[in-house]
Simulated scan of single mutants.
Amino acid sequence: MELDKIDRAILIAIQADGRATNASLAETVGLSETPCARRLKRLEAEGYIEGYRAILSKSALKLGLVAFALLRFGVHDRQLADRFEREIQAIPRIISCHNISGSADYLLEIVARDLDDYGTFLRDVLRALPGVTSVESTLSLREVKRNAGLPMP
C-alpha cells in the first residue's frame, strides 16, 4: 500500500517520540484517535514500523568511547562469514555491524568505557573473531548527529 501524507506524518512523529500517546499522535497528525490508531496498527502490520525502543545515555552508562572498526578477512568463505556474523550478534558492545564494499569486509560500531577498555576488547575479542586478519579503528571525537530516524520519501 502507498504511504499518503498522513501515514508519513505518523511515521515522522513516532520516530521523534515512540512513547507518544495515541491522543497526542492523533492531534499531531490532524486525525481523531480511532482512525489514527487504525493507521498506526496498519503501519505496524505492513512492516513500516519494526519496533519501539528507548535511547540510552552512553555517558550515564559510562561508555565514553565510540569506535568504528574496519575488519578485513583473508579468505572469503560463506561458512566463515556466517560464523562471524553469528558471533557478532552475541557481543553487546558491538552496537552495529555492516557488511560493506571497498577495502574492508565489515564496519562495526563499538562502545567502550575508555581507550584502555577498547584496546583490551580489540586484542581479546575483535582480533579473535573467525576470519578476521586485520582491524583498523577510528575513534569518534564527538557525535555531531544522532540517528534521527529515516527520511520520508
Rank of each mutant, 00 (worst) to 15 (best):
S101R: 03
R72F: 01
A81Y: 03
R78Y: 14
F73N: 01
N22Y: 04
C97N: 07
R53N: 09
V29R: 00
G30T: 14
D105A: 13
Q79F: 14
R53K: 13
N99E: 07
E46T: 13
L71I: 15
A54H: 05
E44P: 01
S96Y: 05
S103F: 05
C36R: 01
S32M: 11
F68R: 11
T34Y: 04
D105H: 08
G102K: 09
R83S: 13
C97F: 04
E50V: 13
A67Q: 03
L31V: 09
L70V: 06
E33K: 10
D77C: 12
A23T: 09
A20R: 08
R39D: 01
R72V: 06
V66I: 15
A20L: 13
A67V: 12
S96N: 14
K58D: 11
I94F: 00
L25A: 07
C36A: 11
I49K: 02
L31D: 02
A90M: 09
L70T: 11
P35C: 10
I49E: 03
T21P: 05
A69C: 15
Y52P: 02
V29K: 00
L56Y: 09
A37F: 00
L40G: 05
Q89Y: 07
G47E: 04
R78G: 13
L25C: 08
I49N: 02
I91G: 06
A54L: 06
G74L: 12
N99F: 04
R42N: 12
I88T: 11
R39L: 00
R38Q: 15
V29H: 01
F68A: 09
H76D: 15
R83N: 15
L31Y: 05
C36F: 01
A26V: 08
H98P: 00
A81T: 15
R72H: 07
E50P: 00
I55R: 10
A26P: 04
L63H: 14
G51E: 06
G102I: 15
N22W: 02
A26C: 10
E27R: 14
G47T: 07
E46G: 03
R19L: 09
L56G: 03
L65R: 13
N99W: 04
R53W: 07
D77E: 14
K41T: 11
A67H: 03
R38Y: 05
R19Q: 10
I91L: 08
D82N: 09
G47A: 07
A20W: 02
I88Y: 00
E85I: 06
S103R: 09
R78Q: 13
L25Q: 03
V29N: 00
A81C: 06
G102C: 12
L40A: 02
Y52D: 07
P35V: 08
C97Q: 07
R93C: 08
L31W: 02
D77F: 13
F84N: 08
N99D: 02
A23R: 08
L71F: 06
E50I: 11
G51S: 05
P35D: 12
G102F: 02
H98Q: 08
A69M: 10
R38T: 13
A37K: 10
F73R: 03
L43E: 05
R83I: 07
E27Q: 14
D82T: 11
I91A: 05
A37E: 13
A45L: 03
Q79L: 12
R42H: 11
H98K: 09
R93E: 13
A104D: 07
I95F: 01
L43I: 02
A26N: 06
G47N: 04
S59V: 14
Q89F: 09
I100G: 01
G51A: 10
E46Y: 07
K58N: 10
A45F: 01
R42L: 01
